[in-house]
Computed example of a mutant assay.
Amino acid sequence: MKKLIVMLFAATGLMSATIPPTAVQSPVPDSAPTESPTATPYDSQLNRLAEVLGTVTYLRNLCGADSEPQWRASMEKLIEEDAENEPLRKEALTASFNRGYRAFAAVHTTCTSAARMAESQYRAEGATLVDEMTARFGN
Rank of each mutant, 00 (worst) to 15 (best):
R72H: 01
A73I: 15
E35V: 09
I19L: 10
P29N: 02
L59A: 00
F9Y: 04
A65T: 06
N47L: 04
S74C: 04
Q70T: 10
E81K: 10
S26C: 14
T18D: 11
L49E: 05
A50T: 03
T12W: 06
G13P: 04
L62T: 12
P20N: 05
K77G: 04
R72W: 00
D43R: 12
Q45C: 11
T12S: 10
C63V: 09
D30H: 15
I19V: 11
A65C: 11
A65Q: 02
D30Y: 14
G13F: 07
E81M: 11
P20A: 07
P37H: 02
T18I: 15
Q70N: 06
R60A: 06
V52I: 05
A10D: 15
V28G: 00
S44K: 14
R48N: 01
L59W: 01
T38P: 03
S74G: 02
I19R: 14
F9T: 03
T34N: 02
I79N: 05
S44T: 13
A17L: 15
Q25Y: 14
M75N: 11
W71D: 04
V52H: 00
T22N: 11
K77N: 07
D66E: 07
E80M: 15
T38Q: 09
A50Y: 00
E35C: 06
G64W: 07
A10G: 15
I79E: 01
A32S: 08
T22C: 08
N47V: 01
P21L: 03
A39R: 13
N61T: 06
S67V: 14
S67I: 14
P27K: 05
G54H: 10
T40G: 14
T34L: 03
E76Y: 12
A11C: 08
T57A: 13
E76Q: 10
S16D: 13
T40E: 07
A73L: 15
A73M: 15
S44H: 12
A73R: 12
S36C: 00
N61M: 09
T22A: 11
T57R: 10
V56C: 01
N47F: 01
T34R: 04
R72I: 02
E80R: 13
K77T: 04
I79Y: 05
G64N: 02
R48D: 05
A23D: 06
N61A: 06
S31T: 02
A23H: 03
V24C: 08
Y42P: 15
Q45K: 11
R72Y: 02
E35G: 00
T38A: 11
Q45N: 05
A32D: 02
